[in-house]
């Protein structure tokens, strides 16, 4: 099971989406949440802070979610952080690509709070 005190990093270029995910996570009981607006600013935070879980979008300027997971999985210090991709990309090939790069689970937008909870539970039960 996931720890409600864990530090969660939300990465999305749309501020509305970050707020929506943050609110849902808060309603699920998580309160230690920080945000980044793209992959490269997420990396800066990851190198500075101890992050326990990442919820990231795919399409973002500067560094995409896919490039972010590639960097994370090749970094000794960061590679074990659970990574949930939340994206509008719903094609099978894209889901496969993300899974091959090492994402732990995948949510297609728009999604419900129940789906987010279910995916988080699944990631942390493994």
């Amino acid at each position: 099971m996931s720890n409600l005190k864990m530090k969660i990093l939300i990465v999305d270029d749309f501020s509305t989406m970050r707020r929506i995910i943050k609110n849902i996570l808060k309603q699920l009981g998580y309160s230690n949440i920080i945000e980044a607006d793209d992959g490269s600013s997420a990396l800066t935070l990851l190198k500075k802070d101890k992050i326990d879980f990442i919820v990231s979008d795919w399409n973002m300027p500067k560094m995409s979610g896919l490039d972010l997971i590639k960097v994370i999985r090749s970094d000794e210090k960061l590679k074990s952080i659970p990574f949930l991709m939340v994206t509008a990309e719903a094609q099978k090939e894209q889901v496969m690509k993300a899974l091959q790069e090492g994402v732990d689970n995948y949510i297609v937008k728009p999604f419900t709070a129940e789906i987010l909870k279910e995916k988080i539970d699944k990631i942390f039960s493994n």
Partner: peptide, 11 residues
């Protein structure tokens, strides 16, 4: 919460 998630249309 459903209303919040519905707002993801903007994204």
């Amino acid at each position: 919460i459903d209303l919040l998630t519905a707002l993801s249309f903007q994204d």
